[in-house]
Amino acid sequence: MDITEIDENAALVVIDVQKGFDDEGFWGRRDNPAAEENIAALIDRWQETGRPVVFVRHDSSREGSPLRTGSAGNAFKDVVEERRGKGTGPELLVTKSVNSAFYGEPDLDAWLREAARGGAADGRRGQIVIVGIQTNMCNETTARMAGNLGYDVVFPIDAMHTFDLAGPFGWERSAEELTRATAVSLHGGAFARVVSTQDVLKGAAAY
């Protein structure tokens, strides 16, 4: 399959595009300022072609988290909220409190195989396209699990972003370095096909 070929019933999974991620004081410096623009373009394409869209929201229970349930930061960013419910295809809201969107409510895997018609007759999973925040956290975790479950995972790396991060032993990595590491791990490890937003837009034209 060419990397630009997007299935008729491929689901777009939009992960954690929430206002709380705009809190630079909490998260630090981010990469890819074009992420929201690319996410919007993909949502628009999915909605105009009637493909299924999943909006995922992280409901944090951590004290002090900008994403905690009931806080202003828990809400979707306008770029997502103004598009919800505007498509002609199936749509789902998943809420979660961990990294993988497959451990949320309602059951994402079940919905993709049934309501989104994402499964083949022999039980194989279909195709999903993952976008959102953060590249190396919830996006990567969801992509790895989707790959393990048997989905054909497409990962437009410029339709997401992450933040600089400090780890053990005094190691620090920039958001750009973490993005590249995610891309290499997912693509090189055959969990997902890492592509660009333009690749996906070309492949998801009206059918």
Score class of each variant (00 low, 15 high):
5 E>A: 14
5 E>Q: 14
6 I>A: 03
7 D>P: 00
8 E>V: 12
12 L>Q: 08
12 L>H: 07
20 G>P: 06
21 F>Y: 15
24 E>R: 14
24 E>M: 06
24 E>T: 14
26 F>Q: 02
28 G>S: 09
28 G>T: 09
29 R>W: 00
30 R>N: 12
32 N>V: 08
34 A>I: 00
44 D>G: 03
46 W>D: 00
47 Q>Y: 06
49 T>G: 06
50 G>R: 03
55 F>T: 00
57 R>Y: 05
59 D>H: 14
66 P>Q: 08
71 S>G: 15
72 A>W: 05
72 A>P: 12
75 A>T: 09
77 K>N: 14
77 K>H: 11
78 D>W: 06
80 V>E: 02
82 E>A: 15
85 G>E: 11
86 K>D: 10
87 G>F: 07
89 G>I: 11
92 L>M: 15
93 L>T: 14
95 T>W: 02
98 V>R: 14
103 Y>E: 12
105 E>Y: 11
109 D>I: 03
109 D>V: 05
111 W>I: 09
113 R>V: 08
113 R>E: 13
113 R>H: 10
115 A>N: 11
117 R>S: 13
118 G>A: 06
118 G>K: 02
118 G>Y: 04
122 D>G: 06
122 D>F: 05
125 R>M: 08
132 G>V: 03
137 M>N: 12
139 N>Q: 07
140 E>N: 08
142 T>M: 03
142 T>H: 00
143 A>I: 02
144 R>S: 02
150 G>M: 05
151 Y>G: 01
152 D>V: 10
158 D>T: 01
159 A>R: 00
162 T>G: 15
164 D>E: 11
167 G>T: 11
168 P>W: 07
169 F>S: 13
170 G>M: 10
176 E>I: 09
176 E>F: 04
180 R>V: 14
181 A>Y: 10
186 L>C: 02
187 H>M: 03
187 H>W: 11
193 R>S: 13
193 R>C: 03
199 D>F: 00
205 A>I: 09
206 A>G: 01
207 Y>M: 09
